[in-house]
Amino acid sequence: MFTEIITPRFSDTDALGHINNTMVPIWFEGARDPVFRLFMPELDTNNWQLILAKIDVSYHAQMFYGQALEVRTYISRIGGASFDVYQELWQNGAKCASGTAVMVHYCYQQQTSQTIADSVKETLLAHQFQAQ
């Protein structure tokens, strides 16, 4: 599991005073950086090797300004060329949101998916989701 603490900004709130729902996918993407580094340690956009195929987000509880949020990032599925990143957003001991991003190991020059190397799969497995 990878973790990241986020401090919500005032501008992250909506008219009701809650964290705006549009922030969660943005925070989830930012918290996927450690996963990106498994494929591209320098995060060199000229040598990017991943493509996002799908995301989904479920909201479980309200989130509020002025209170830290923890993003927990796991790997929930590993295929030949794709894998799923499962993420949870926690605030004050409650799971407030969860989501899954389907990522594909991809060659932009050839415009095709690529097999994930066994060494990368082993590292991905080390971060596999374990139901709590």
Rank of each mutant, 00 (worst) to 15 (best):
S76Q: 02
L52K: 00
Q87R: 04
I19R: 00
Q114F: 04
Q130L: 10
S98L: 02
Q87M: 15
A101S: 15
W90E: 02
S58A: 14
N47A: 15
S76G: 07
H127I: 00
T100P: 11
S76P: 06
I5Y: 11
T7D: 14
S113P: 01
L16D: 08
I5C: 01
S76C: 09
A131V: 11
V24L: 14
P34T: 09
A94Y: 05
Y86S: 04
W48C: 02
E29W: 12
F83D: 05
G17C: 10
R77S: 12
Q110F: 09
E4C: 03
N92V: 06
S98E: 15
T7G: 00
T123F: 01
D12T: 05
V71P: 03
Y108P: 02
M103A: 06
P25K: 01
K121V: 10
T100I: 15
R32G: 01
V85D: 06
H60R: 00
S82L: 09
F2P: 01
R77Q: 13
C96F: 10
R37M: 15
H18I: 03
A101C: 15
V104D: 06
D44F: 13
F83R: 00
I26K: 06
H18A: 05
T115G: 00
T13S: 15
P8S: 09
D33Q: 11
S119H: 14
